[in-house]
Write a protein that binds this DNA or RNA. Structure first.
Length: 591
RNA sequence: GGUCCGGUAGCUCAGCUGGAUAGAGCAUCAGCCUUCUAAGCUGAGGGUCAUUGGUUCGAAUCCAAUCCGGAUCACCA
C-alpha cells in the first residue's frame, strides 16, 4: 500500500478516534511536503476545519499526536505551519521499502485483473508512407498498451488499414499513366515511398488539368469535377467495387508494395499488432446494424432512400448512416467493426488512438452505438491526441513540409552515432553492437520526445530540439541507467548485510521518489497518458544523478552505507528500465 | 455561426479533482572532470499564469464574459 493510502486511512481513523467524526479521502488533501519545510508528507487541514473545528493548530496537534501514537513505526514527528500538518516518516519505513523491492524487476506492476482491452492505433492509409503524425500515434498506442499491461490488463493491439477508397485509386491511376511498368524493385525504392510518389504525381497532374480547364473558362468547381484524371479515379473506384479483375489485381499489387514498406518501418520502430483489420473487409459491415436501427426507429429513411439518424436533441446534427445506393459510410462500418472486435475478443474496453480532428466522429459513433443499445457501446473510448506541428506551422503534404517517418528515424539514429563517436566511450564495441546502440539511443530520443507531452495537446516538433540529447530527453535517462550499470559492474553487492542506518537527505529523496512509482503507473493507465511516466522517470533520474554527484557509492563511509547505496542504485535502475519499457524505449548497459 | 480544445519564462512543456514563495528542460551567464561514465552536477538571471469580473479563508487551477489560436459541423475515410 502506498504511503498516501496509509496516511489517508490513518487520518480517517484518527479523526474518528478523537472526534468521532466520519470523513472520506475526498475531504482532505495529502501532498508531498515542500522542500523548505521539515517533513515528508503533508496533510492540508483547511478543508477539515469546515467540520467545525476551532483552530487549525489545535486540530493539527491532536491529529498529529494521534497519528504518531497509532502508527509509531511510520510517523515519527510532525509540525504545523499555517494549517499544514507536516509529518516525518521513519527511516525504517524507507529502508524496509528498499529492502523489500530493490531487486524486484516487476516493482510497481499489478497482477492480472481479468480485464481485456483492445488498443487500436496506427491505422494508416495505403497511398503514402508514414509520417511524423503516425509516429506519435504509434508510440502512444504502443505505450498505452504497455502501461495497461503493467496494470494487469490483458491487452490486444490492433490496427485498421485504410486500404481502399479514392486516395488509393489516385496512386493507382497515376501509376498507370506515368510509371511505364516501374516497380519498387526496378527503381530501388521502398514500396510505400514508391506508391507515395505516384500519389504526389497524381496531385501535380490534377492541378495541371484543373488549371488548363480554368483557362478554357471553366469555374474552379467545374474544373475540379471534370478534370479527366479525376473522372478516371471515380471510374476506377466503381470498377474496384464491381470487382473488376484488372483493377483488383493492380490494387493488390500496389498495396502489396506498401505493406512491404510499412512492415519495414514498423519493424524498425518496434511496433506490432495482434490483429490487423482491413477496411476492404470491413467496409460492408454495419448493414444489419442499419436494419436494427430502422426496426428500433433510431434511424429513418428519407425520400431518396438514404438512411439517417437525428442527433439534434444531443446537440449534434443529422447524420447519414447509409447512402442512397445502399453502401455503408465511415460511421456505419465503424459501428460494425466495434461490434466485431467485441465479439472476437470479448473485450471490456476498446481504446481508439485517433487524432483529435475526429473528436466529433467518435462522439457520434459512441452515441449511435448507445442509442442502438449495441453491447460494445460503453466500451468505446477515444484516446484523442493533438496534431504534431512544425515551428513553421502545420505539416502540409502539398507544400512538401511533411516529415517522413523513415527519414526522421534515420536522422535520429545518425545523430546518435555522431554524438556517441564524439564522446568515444564505447570504442571497444563490435560493429553490430554499435549499430544496436545507435538505434537504441536514436529511437529512444525520438520516442521520448513525442511521448513526454500530454497526448491530448497538440505539440510542436522542433527538429533541432528533438535531436538534443541533454536534459529532459530519452538519452539522459538511458545515460543515467548506463552509469548505474557501470557502477554495479565494478562493485559487488552483498545482500547479507543488514542495514540499519540513518538516511541522508539525498538517499531518502530517491526512496521518496521510488515509492511513488506504482501510483504513477496506475495514474498513467487511468488517464491513458504516457507522459506521466516520462515525467516521472525523468525526475527520478535527476534525483539519482544529483545523489551520485554528492555521495560516493564505491567509496562510501562504511560498508553498510555502500550496501545501502548499491541497493538504491539497483532499485533506481529497475524503475528506470521498466518505466522506459512502458514508453517502448530500451536502455543500454553501456553508452 | 454552432460545438469542442487550447493560451503558464525568449522557446518547448509540467502543474489544473482549489492550498505554503508558480516548476522543469532548452537557450543565456557563472562555477565543477588526478575521485563510481561531464549525454552529468551546482548556482544566477528570466513570469501581469491571455484579459476582466465572480465564488472562496485561499484561484494558474472552479464559474461567467471578452480577446487570440486551432479542430470540427461531407452521400471522404
Amino acid at each position: 500500500m502506498s504511503i498516501v493510502h496509509i496516511l489517508q486511512k490513518a487520518v480517517i481513523k484518527s479523526l474518528n478516534n478523537i472526534y468521532n467524526l466520519t470523513v472520506t479521502e475526498q475531504d482532505f488533501q495529502i501532498n508531498l511536503t515542500k522542500n523548505e519545510f521539515e517533513g515528508d508528507y503533508t496533510v492540508v487541514l483547511f478543508s477539515l476545519l469546515k467540520k467545525n473545528f476551532t483552530s487549525p493548530d489545535i486540530l493539527g496537534i491532536q491529529l498529529g499526536n494521534d497519528l504518531i501514537k497509532n502508527n509509531s513505526k511510520i510517523f515519527i514527528a510532525f509540525n504545523i505551519i499555517k494549517g499544514f500538518l507536516n509529518l516525518s516518516i521513519a527511516d525504517e519505513f524507507w529502508i524496509a521499502l528498499l529492502k523489500n523491492n530493490y531487486d524486484d524487476t516487476c516493482y510497481g506492476k499489478q497482477p492480472l485483473n481479468g480485464k481485456r482491452v483492445m488498443v487500436e492505433y496506427s491505422s494508416p492509409n495505403t497511398n503514402k508512407p508514414l509520417h511524423l503524425g503516425h509516429l506519435r500515434n504509434n508510440f502512444l498506442g504502443w505505450s498505452v498498451a504497455e502501461i495497461l499491461k503493467s496494470c494487469g490488463y490483458k491487452v490486444f493491439k490492433s490496427c485498421i488499414v485504410n486500404d481502399r477508397g479514392v486516395h488509393i485509386c489516385k496512386s493507382m491511376i497515376a501509376w498507370q499513366m506515368f510509371a511505364d511498368g516501374a516497380t519498387p524493385q526496378t527503381n530501388n525504392t521502398k514500396g510505400d515511398h514508391f506508391v507515395g510518389e505516384y500519389y504526389v504525381k497524381f496531385n501535380d497532374e490534377y492541378k495541371r488539368q484543373v488549371a488548363e480547364l480554368i483557362e478554357k473558362n471553366y469555374t474552379q468547381k467545374d474544373a475540379e469535377k471534370d478534370a479527366p484524371i479525376m473522372k478516371a479515379v471515380q471510374q476506377m473506384l466503381q470498377d474496384w467495387e464491381a470487382g473488376e479483375f484488372s483493377v483488383i489485381e493492380l490494387w493488390k499489387t500496389m498495396n502489396g508494395w506498401v505493406y512491404e514498406g510499412f512492415a519495414a518501418t514498423y519493424k524498425n520502430i518496434g511496433s506490432d499488432f495482434d490483429k490487423t483489420y482491413y477496411e476492404s473487409n470491413t467496409y460492408l459491415l454495419g448493414k444489419d446494424i442499419v436494419q436494427q436501427g430502422l426496426d428500433k426507429d433510431v434511424f429513418y429513411r428519407k425520400e431518396d432512400s438514404s438512411i439517417w439518424i437525428d442527433l439534434t436533441e444531443n446537440g449534434l446534427d443529422e447524420k447519414l448512416v447509409l447512402r442512397k445506393d445502399g453502401t455503408s459510410v465511415y460511421i456505419t462500418q465503424d459501428i460494425g467493426l466495434a461490434q466485431q472486435k467485441y465479439e472476437e475478443y470479448k473485450i471490456d474496453e476498446s481504446i481508439y488512438v485517433i487524432g483529435d480532428e475526429q473528436n466529433y466522429h467518435m462522439k457520434v459513433l459512441k452515441l449511435i452505438a448507445q442509442k442502438l443499445s449495441v453491447a460494445s457501446a460503453d466500451a468505446i473510448h477515444h484516446l484523442s491526441y493533438g496534431m504534431v506541428e512544425l515551428p513553421s506551422g502545420k505539416m502540409k503534404s502539398r507544400e512538401g513540409t511533411v516529415v517522413d517517418a523513415d527519414d526522421l528515424v534515420d536522422e535520429m539514429i545518425n545523430t546518435a552515432r555522431k554524438h556517441t563517436e564524439e564522446l568515444g566511450k564505447v570504442k571497444d564495441f563490435t560493429a553490430p553492437e554499435l549499430v544496436h546502440l545507435y538505434k537504441t539511443i536514436g529511437l529512444g530520443a525520438m520516442k521520448f520526445y513525442l511521448l513526454r507531452v500530454d497526448p491530448k495537446k497538440k505539440m510542436v516538433f522542433n527538429p533541432e530540439e528533438s535531436i538534443d540529447f541533454h536534459g529532459f530527453t530519452g538519452p539522459f535517462i538511458q545515460y543515467t541507467y548506463a552509469r548505474i550499470k557501470s557502477i554495479l559492474r565494478k562493485e559487488k553487492f552483498d545482500p547479507v548485510i543488514n542495514i540499519s542506518t540513518n538516511l541522508l537527505k539525498s538517499e531518502k529523496d530517491i526512496l521518496v521518489a521510488a515509492e511513488q512509482f506504482p501510483l504513477v503507473i496506475s495514474e498513467a493507465a487511468k488517464e491513458l497518458d504516457p507522459s506521466k511516466v516520462a515525467n516521472y522517470i525523468f525526475t527520478l533520474a535527476k534525483t539519482f544523478n544529483s545523489f551520485l554527484s554528492e555521495l560516493s557509492i564505491i567509496k562510501a563511509e562504511s560498508e553498510e552505507k555502500k550496501q545501502l547505496r548499491l541497493q538504491l542504485a539497483i532499485m533506481t535502475a529497475n524503475i528506470l528500465k521498466s518505466g522506459m519499457q512502458m514508453l517502448g524505449i530500451d536502455v543500454p548497459e553501456r553508452m
